[in-house]
Design a protein around this nucleic acid. Sequence first.
DNA 1: ACAAAAGTGTTATCCTTACACCCATGT
DNA 2: ACATGGGTGTAAGGATAACACTTTTGT
Lengths: 258, 258
Amino acid sequence: MNQKEVTIAKPVMLDKNFFSGHSVDCVILGFEQGEIKVLLLKWKAFEKWSLPGGFIGNDEDLDKAAIRILQERTGISLPFLEQFHSFGDVNRKGKESFLSEIKSLIGHDSNLINWISQRFISTGYLSLVNIKKCNLVPDELSERCEWVSLNNVSNLIYDHNEMIKMALQKIKMQLNYLPIGITLLDSKFTMKELQLLYQSILGKEIDRGNFQKKMLKLDILIRLEKQNLGGAHKAPYLYKFDKLKYKKLLKKGFGYIN
Amino acid sequence: MNQKEVTIAKPVMLDKNFFSGHSVDCVILGFEQGEIKVLLLKWKAFEKWSLPGGFIGNDEDLDKAAIRILQERTGISLPFLEQFHSFGDVNRKGKESFLSEIKSLIGHDSNLINWISQRFISTGYLSLVNIKKCNLVPDELSERCEWVSLNNVSNLIYDHNEMIKMALQKIKMQLNYLPIGITLLDSKFTMKELQLLYQSILGKEIDRGNFQKKMLKLDILIRLEKQNLGGAHKAPYLYKFDKLKYKKLLKKGFGYIN
DNA sequence: ACAAAAGTGTTATCCTTACACCCATGT
DNA sequence: ACATGGGTGTAAGGATAACACTTTTGT
């Protein structure tokens, strides 16, 4: 492989050679105050937000690159990200090129500018996390790194809004097969919190009683002591996931296997 | 965008400039004699089979590239292919490089050889088709273009065997939501043929009576006259899909929407 | 006492599953 | 007559959805 021809220059985000023409973007979703939130970066150089993304090392697996990029850009370490789609439209960057902003970021090295402003195909990766367990550390390119409620997501750069949409579709599909709460909630939670999570993903109301019965019948929840938060009402039970039974359920398959 | 730097040389498969480092591979599945079959190409230059694949034009959407590549390499024109996964492991090409074979195909232009033997990330596309309606025309690189029963698929080049596996997984998931037969069967078919199709995708037996009831209840099949094939038994009905109702069912959603 | 939220129960309806029964046809 | 495969029916069990009832708690 002739590296001189394929890798033109080093982008700034990492001190190594990158694979040309392909990038990764991460849709990291969390749940807080009854709302789904997505992890976004605010650029230092210009007034735009974007998904945490980056480039792939020449000697790096695509899946591994996603994990590294997320860590470097946001501080979040995850052992596994799920690929959900690759975005390869010619005009996926839209009309705004951010060229002057990019120059202010990376300097005026023309090789580098050419490299970074070429066409990129980007593969989207996805994960659901517990917001409280995430210690956010924005990288040097970013002014801020924040959880943004889905309703408040602005016009992101390139096709990042579409990426979020597709990630949510994928989540919806998995919701039918997987008890998703284990990654998004605290270790202890009430049935109401779990229900709010499902409702905000599905975008619809669910009957309270039926939801409770359905979840309990899965036999992956352990009921703990009651929690008295001091409302004028009965105290709700706390639950935690029975991780052993949860794993067994996963291994048994997602419903379409058998 | 500086094309001189990004596009090094022209590969042979098409007379235009290609996007570097990214390819497309198509998993096209059909159904014949009660078996799922996959469309494969046998190389002229060496004794290996592979999925129909190719490169992406510099000014071509990824999705469009897949459609064009399939047409050029196999003769099959489809209006739509579904993306299912991108394969980006560093060593996805495996140990065999086929370098000498590639040279015999494309000549000894070192730029071209470098271009073609670099690392490629490949996006897999998927479709289900009616074998009888496909007029196979192998391209100049291929000796043959054939439907191969899944059980008879040999060791394909690179990670193509894994690609087929992942495509089948995706199909299984969709089977729960979509009445898939419309693309795979003849316009007229018996309930038994439809059942054999489902069984071969799911890899399990389905109760005959229950399957019939379930399919009829979907209300997308039109019962036609009986077909007497001359067996020592009752003649089965023929069915065709009610395409209007079928489309309505699709629009209504796949089950996870509501 | 009352409202609010949590836990549980009831009922009708639908779907799934396993299996049985009858029908048509060629040998 | 009988085996073979095709169409339909039945009964049990499970899942779902709508809704009602009871319990706990602060005001």
